[in-house]
Design a protein around this nucleic acid. Structure first.
Lengths: 150, 150
DNA sequence: TAATTCTTGACTAATTTACTCGGGAACATA
DNA sequence: TATGTTCCCGAGTAAATTAGTCAAGAATTA
């Protein structure tokens, strides 16, 4: 399981975009987000690139360009953001393949599956809007699983 | 947040010890646990050393020596094991210090605190016995927090 | 004494993280 | 169409971390 600076920056930056869209409806520049949230701009480029490819953000080039959310802020789940940028959020030793002890499931396998489910549910039940308004998960889990649960 | 092979090996090895103690009441050798659970023995040495220093295991040297749990298997929480061996399980960007955005709390700070609490509760509510008998957390959270929650 | 088992610390290769850098492409405006 | 703006993309890299190995030593039992 990896939860790194990249994932945390991604969430922070997405929250920033969501908040900016409440103020004005246009695109927000990487450099502005970077400055406000204290994130290295060139690193944030990489992160936004991934979020765009995952369909979470929409980009526009040129003057007045930048990024905006593809959906409403109550429709974007934190879990989506994290899986889009993190290498691996799975907690099983075998990446869910059940081969953790010389080809068979290790004795902790089901425990880590449960752990995955728990993290999954937490991250997929909280939208950007929930976090901004300090709610603790109000929207139903809708889509696909964040982590393969074997 | 770091959940690495070390933490996963630690849980698996502790489960093995717990299961062995049901069979016989003596000490279990590192080499036996390593063989059964497919964990490098010299790496497991390091892991058991930490678990012993954390008071989770008790060791004996010499013939018939090895390791055993210091408590009953329904009293050892998975969370204890993981914090004993993992470098950092905190998910906040600032290690809970609230300085994630140039000296102040970043806009995601409270979210990561909630995430910590969630993981915390999950791991501290499951004992070795719960995992072995495939229960999903039966014992009350008793002790100190796994992760500082700011 | 000899064999066994933990104890400790040093060491290391490979991987990952957390970035930077530079050139290019699209777009808006004048 | 020239110019500045902003995203796009890939390559490169220093530092940290992971996932181990190895060897010498201490305690214990037979």
């Amino acid at each position: 399981m990896n939860l790194t600076t990249k994932g945390k920056y991604a969430v922070t930056a997405a929250l920033d975009l969501a908040m900016q869209q409440t103020i004005a409806d246009g695109f927000t520049k990487i450099s502005d987000v970077a400055k406000r949230q204290d994130i290295p701009a060139s690193y944030l480029e990489q992160i936004f690139s991934r979020l765009r490819k995952a369909g979470i953000l929409h980009a526009a080039r040129g003057p007045n360009g930048g990024f905006k959310l593809s959906k409403q802020r109550d429709e974007v789940m934190i879990g989506e953001i994290i899986t889009a940028v993190e290498r691996n959020m799975d907690a099983t030793q075998c990446s869910g393949e059940g081969i953790c002890n010389s080809g068979t499931k290790c004795i902790a396998h089901n425990f880590w599956i449960d752990f995955n489910d728990n993290v999954n549910e937490f991250l997929m039940s909280r939208s950007l809007d929930d976090v901004i308004t300090n709610r603790r998960g109000s929207v139903e889990q809708t889509g696909q699983a964040l982590i393969a649960t074997g």
